[in-house]
């Protein structure tokens, strides 16, 4: 069993693909050589797709082109040096990889896990694997859902059961992290040909207008930012930076925003615009939290003591001084003391 050239084009992050590239003896300067502009075209296409619609398409026409462009994109991103953009791209590529792997042959997932990442993965039966717990734990803590918690898994002799879809998710998360870390490495300054500079400028513009949409939607609404407790502010920052958040963190942020008067739409937009959250799933969850679905209970924000045990509490002087026991109390006290009016409907 081995990976075909076509597989390498679908999964250009794997070891075999990288070996293939080095066998071609490609250097950075050549990337910017006009003779190879077709490669750069595909690189920009990948990144633009990620920016505009959050997706990158797999194209199996020119296989070399796929392999090369995937591996060159991080170089371009590190020249641009915008972490939010790099994250958006990494997320989109990871999504693509996930969708391919989910429906691909079991042996390929195993080959990639073992040969490219040095994970210990055993094939059990069609669609079912075991992965060594330490490898599972490299990325599972970033996933919010309860079924990703180790305690909700079957663990025997160090091995954790995973389905093909789950293994695909772990692989794609690994890919996301690798792309992001490569894209955020500082680049040695190289002088770029002006046509490349122009394209980079173009990309920057597209991304900044896209970002303006997200940000302008943020300031609306009755939320008074300066009154947010430090725990919520730090979650907010993490989200805006595109960090993945564990379940408890998302739950806390969503309940807080909803209880402070933000609409379901606002909250969904905030989550999906900033990180790799699937819009449909997120909407479902946020509506559930808001009490529009299922049990119809509106959830309240966890207490400070709960946040403390989850390591999400970063008390400031106000928390200590007022002996705040609930983030909502912090918010209400702060709003009152700053004289701002708060309530549904808002002050805008």
């Amino acid at each position: 069993m081995y990976l075909s050239r076509e597989d390498l084009a679908k999964y250009p992050f794997c070891r075999e693909a990288k070996e293939y590239i080095s066998s071609l003896g490609f250097t950075i300067d050549e990337v910017f050589n006009p003779d190879f502009s077709i490669i750069l075209d595909r690189v920009f296409e990948r990144i633009e797709g990620a920016v505009r619609i959050g997706r990158v398409e797999t194209r199996l026409i020119d296989l070399d082109l796929e392999i090369l462009s995937f591996n060159i994109a991080p170089i371009i991103l590190s020249i641009i040096g915008d972490n939010a953009l790099s994250m958006r791209y990494a997320v989109a590529e990871a999504k693509r990889v996930y969708e391919e792997l989910r429906v691909d042959d079991d042996y390929k997932l195993q080959l990639i896990s073992v040969n490219s990442f040095n994970w210990r993965v055993r094939f059990l039966r069609p669609g079912a694997f075991q992965i060594f717990f330490a490898d599972f734990l490299q990325f599972s803590p970033a996933f919010e859902a309860f079924n990703w918690k180790l305690v909700n898994r079957s663990v025997i002799g160090g091995w954790v059961y995973v389905s093909r879809g789950e293994l695909a998710r772990l692989i794609s998360e690994r890919v996301k992290n690798e792309i992001f870390s490569k894209s955020s490495q500082p680049m040695p300054s190289i002088t770029l040909p002006s046509n490349v500079m122009d394209r980079i400028e173009g990309l920057r513009k597209i991304f900044s207008s896209y970002r303006r949409v997200v940000e302008s939607e943020e300031v609306k609404g009755p939320m008074i930012e300066s009154a947010m407790p430090p725990c919520i502010r730090s979650l907010m920052n993490g989200l805006l930076k595109g960090e993945s958040m564990p379940h408890m963190a998302r739950f806390t942020l969503a309940t807080f925003l909803l209880n402070a008067g933000r609409s379901v739409d606002d909250v969904v937009k905030l989550f999906t615009a900033s990180a790799d959250y699937d819009e449909k799933m997120t909407r479902y969850q946020v509506e559930h939290i808001a009490g529009l679905r299922g049990s119809r209970t509106k959830y309240s924000t966890p207490k400070c003591s709960t946040l403390k045990t989850f390591g999400l509490c970063f008390p400031d002087d106000f928390c200590v001084l007022k002996k705040v026991k609930h983030p909502m109390t912090y918010y209400k006290l702060k709003v009152k003391s700053s004289g701002g009016g708060v309530g549904k409907g808002g002050s805008n």
């Binding site: 330490a134 734990l137 490299q138 918690k149 180790l150 305690v151």
Partner: peptide, 16 residues
């Protein structure tokens, strides 16, 4: 993070 997950596993925290 891995150690936190192991801790939760052993204490039965977050168990569904």
């Amino acid at each position: 993070e891995a150690r936190r997950e192991i801790t939760d596993y052993i204490r039965g925290v977050g168990l569904s």
